[in-house]
């Protein structure tokens, strides 16, 4: 427990240092508040508009989670299919990779034109931004199985399905979780983009509003809210990871006491 606390001290120290630099910079260079408000002002703004921010954060979190879940329920099976079929992989993978070089922000308005303004299109945009890491890591995970492991599966005469279920999938889980951690962070970005192009609520929407009104205080308050959402979701995924694959070395090495 003491060690936990000890490791938490480092990021907190970094945060304090950054806030101090921020504060000093504003004071030192007389930065006007509409460009960069003081840390204290941002905190004050968050306190003032707490319930308002919470309401919009809730909406954005919903879209983020929805898109993230879509990324998993589509990304993982898609990876499985691509690994299973060489033909399909050859046909589809280059296009999937190409699609990633494409700025997905540019797709968002199109999705709105096609699907309208409801929840659906927002989930689609978030999914488009977030699914690739899950897809790629799942593919890597399913592929990176040692030769002797495969030989063991064959020696015990496991069927293709059994080999997948008892060997390949569990062995891919560490990679899948690595992809999910990237993906959940991308999902927050995706949700904000989705709310930029057709929303009347949510943090992305607030961001546009604040920008239009030169309300830098609100802008910063929203950024803080987004950060909190991102960090909480990231650690939630990590918690699930600890529960699902406690046997994996990356987790064991993190808490040697366990």
């Amino acid at each position: 427990m003491m060690r936990r606390l000890g490791t938490m001290l480092y990021p907190i120290a970094t945060l304090v240092a950054l806030v101090v630099i921020w504060y000093a910079a504003v004071k030192l260079f007389h930065v006007p508040a509409y460009l960069l408000p003081l840390p204290g002002d941002v905190i004050e703004r968050i306190r003032e508009d707490f319930w308002f921010l919470l309401h919009h954060s809730w909406i954005t979190t919903g879209i983020t989670l929805g898109g993230f879940v879509l990324s998993i329920v589509i990304g993982v099976p898609l990876a499985i299919v691509l690994v299973a079929s060489k033909t399909l992989e050859r046909a589809v993978m280059p296009w999937l990779i190409l699609s990633q070089t494409f700025p997905k922000v540019a797709l968002a308005p199109l999705v709105v034109v096609w699907f309208g303004l409801g929840l659906g299109p927002k989930l689609v945009v978030t999914f488009l931004v977030a699914f690739f890491p899950v897809l790629v890591s799942t593919i890597v995970g399913l592929r990176s199985i040692e030769r002797e492991m495969i030989e063991l599966a064959r020696a015990v005469r496991a069927s293709t399905l059994q080999t997948f279920w008892h060997f390949r999938l569990p062995l891919a889980l560490p990679n899948i979780f690595a992809g999910m951690k990237v993906s959940v962070a991308f999902s927050v970005v995706g949700a904000v983009i989705a709310e930029w192009v057709g929303a009347n609520a949510g943090l992305g929407y607030l961001l546009l509003q604040a920008n239009a009104n030169l309300d830098t205080g609100l802008l910063f308050a929203v950024l803080v809210a987004l950060m909190v959402i991102g960090v909480v979701l990231y650690y939630a995924v990590e918690l699930v990871e600890r529960l699902v694959i406690p046997w994996h070395s990356t987790i064991r090495l993190q808490n040697p006491t366990a």
């Binding site: 063991l152 064959r154 994996h248």
Partner: peptide
């Protein structure tokens, strides 16, 4: 042609399933 039933193999490395 394939691993026949009724054989047991011990590999050079233990290859145990970690979970």
């Amino acid at each position: 042609v394939e691993p026949s039933p009724g054989i047991g193999i011990v590999f050079q490395t233990p290859v145990l399933l970690p979970w």
